[in-house]
Design a protein around this nucleic acid. Structure first.
Lengths: 172, 172
DNA sequence: AATGAGCTTCACATGTTTGTGAAGGTTGTG
DNA sequence: CACAACCTTCACAAACATGTGAAGCTCATT
């Protein structure tokens, strides 16, 4: 199982990488991410460079620069990628925000959860709690609040937890 | 703020309910649910009946029976609705699985998380860990495993936690 | 100031998803 | 045994999303 790097990769290794990227991207899409951002993110994470130019991403993923442009904009907005620029260079560099990556991911989840809580709360306000439906909504809100707490706690604990876990090898 | 019930609701109250249902459904869609199942679920939760016939759902949501048919099938499959039949009745009844509702919801999330873990694990196998990309994948897997544990624990604790929380009133 | 690399924006063709209407099957009732 | 209520399935039209090509903009270099 030799390492596959962007520098010395054979075409076959590149194909393997891209196939994996596509599968990873699919999972991300099912979690709500748009196709192209999902691909770009999966690729940037899985390939070996620390930073990528837009052109490298387009070349690596075999898609048009236009597609990259939109994707990185979204990814930067979410915080998955950071835009950098080397002085005296014409092109932007996109960097994975390694440290905060999965914290950010979960942060996005928390945002969705907050949205749920808000919507449900507004429904309770609008419709009242003294009805079967209102009581169900109230319990729904309780559950989301609980989940929110749990996830926020998990995010807070991750940095410590991370050091506690041994670096994992390969799995079956 | 009087209660809005399916029995004695004014048209205005019905409109308020449907507008809320649409907003709630939107949040569910953003979490990955298809539009019509999202609407049906939001409606069944928010309106006051304990059980609904397909016809009632169609009438209540102002959509065609055909749309309901597909939606309830999916919801039953996920486990959000339970299909019942009163003896001597021609129509099926759909019931919210009240007790396990949000446990099931989170269970679905756990499934998605498992999928992530599997995909990432396969990538590590395929591409190796002795590369920058591989190390990132390994850490990704660690994080997902951690999140998995946290969520599973939360689901297990919810029944107890639920009783601990006071029934919530309305919020601002 | 002109050049050109590199990125972005825009309009469009393609493909997918969604909900409807109409037809068909099933089951209890008169 | 015919009828009627109810649900489901199917084919279709409309809406939406996606990525491409082409044109345009920015900015370091000459």
């Amino acid at each position: 199982m030799g390492g596959v790097t962007s520098v010395d990769a054979t075409p076959a290794e590149r194909t393997t990488l891209l196939r994996f990227v596509e599968r990873f991207a699919l999972a991300l899409r099912e979690a709500g991410m748009a196709p192209m951002p999902a691909r770009v993110f999966a690729y940037a994470l899985s390939d070996d460079a620390d930073r990528y130019t837009a052109a490298e991403l387009a070349e690596g993923l075999q898609v048009s620069p236009a597609a990259i442009s939109g994707a990185v904009r979204q990814l930067v907005q979410i915080g998955f990628l950071v835009r950098e620029r080397e002085p005296g260079t014409r092109s932007d560099l996109y960097v994975l925000d390694d440290e905060n990556l999965w914290t950010r991911f979960t942060g996005a989840e928390l945002g969705a959860l907050q949205k749920f809580e808000d919507v449900v709360a507004s429904g309770i306000d609008l419709l009242g709690v003294d009805r079967p439906g209102g009581r169900r909504l109230a319990e729904t809100r309780e559950f989301f609040a609980f989940l929110h707490e749990v996830l926020a706690d998990a995010v807070a604990r991750w940095p410590e937890e991370r050091t506690r876990r041994p670096a994992a090898g390969t799995a079956g």
